[in-house]
Design a protein around this nucleic acid. Structure first.
Lengths: 176, 176
DNA sequence: GCCATCATGTAATTAGTTACATGATTAG
DNA sequence: CTAATCATGTAACTAATTACATGATGGC
């Protein structure tokens, strides 16, 4: 185990997102990919071409380990004690990077530059997306037990999605 | 003007963020840098080492132009008609990329993995940040006239920041 | 047998960060 | 005259996307 590269004190949200998802539950790379698009979609995104190499690196450094191999040559990874400690260290001791990137927000910011008749189809598209987003989160909220420590997370996501949806409705009303 | 690289139909939020800010008002690279950290901070982040080369490229491709040079060898850029058309095309015709990246959200998602006594200092730090964020946006809201088409944007940002602040307060109460 | 989906990987390119580097102006 | 901040740029590196590539399993 453990190669060279130093995980000193830098950002690396991908690494800690993966580690965090594994701390919740052991998973294959393929399953993690889906979690990034579900429970973590508002916070971070990762594609399979990032996830698989990252899992290999985590295993190499002893922060995760392969705990089983299933059909279709799938490998299930679990977090190790060293991985849990690294997660704690990152959450507690590494200064958070506060920058954020969200293309949808950039678009919403810039749409008012266009004349109203060009705005309307854009707000309609955004409303459709926002409504679908709320529905998806509502479905997700239904399966997360009230007792789960992550329940409040889902609730916040849902409230924010609803706020955005209502705001877009107002924008659409304004240009109609 | 106009070099090779094709701005076909891909993401490139940096480019369109810059173009959008220039559409609002001509600016120097240094001024854009500040706008990325103020009005656009919730949506996109860019550092000066990205902004200056991007401005050069935009000018090279005829989407922006230098309209004045000030003290300290500063150059003021403005959007051109071609740039405005490119912005319209991007907003209207390019399929939005819905992925988002926000380390603060990743952290908030993962904190419940830690035992309560380790959570408390983290929620305190997050609350301090969230409160400062609300204050900053309140200050910003004061200077944006009610008549501005971007006013609703500021309002949404403020409402979301307040929602997050209140949510963190609840988390802190839970572990105290 | 074949198609959809599950499942994993690598290579080439582009985007973004961090570090290096320098000069101009203003306030004290 | 000197320190802070304004102002711009490039180089080296790391992160992320897109494209290439392949194989396994289950349902029809």
């Amino acid at each position: 185990m453990s190669s060279t590269t130093g995980s000193v004190g830098r950002a690396m949200s991908l690494r800690h997102s993966v580690l965090g998802l594994l701390a919740l539950q052991p998973a294959t790379g393929y399953e993690l990919l889906q979690k990034f698009d579900n429970s973590l979609s508002h916070a971070w995104h990762a594609s399979h071409s990032q996830i698989y190499p990252e899992l290999a690196k985590l295993a190499d450094e002893g922060l995760a380990e392969i705990v089983g191999e299933g059909p279709r040559r799938s490998k299930t990874y679990a977090i190790t004690d060293a991985g849990r400690e690294e997660l704690r260290r990152w959450l507690s001791e590494v200064e958070p990077v506060r920058t954020s990137r969200n293309e949808t927000a950039v678009r919403a910011f810039l749409v008012p530059l266009l004349p109203p008749e060009q705005q309307r189809p854009i707000w309609e598209r955004e409303l459709a997306y926002a409504e679908q987003n709320v529905r998806q989160l509502e479905g997700y909220a239904e399966v997360v037990p009230t007792s789960s420590p992550f329940r409040t997370n889902v609730d916040l996501g849902l409230r924010m999605a609803a706020l955005i949806r209502d705001w877009i409705r107002e924008r659409l009303d304004e240009v109609s």
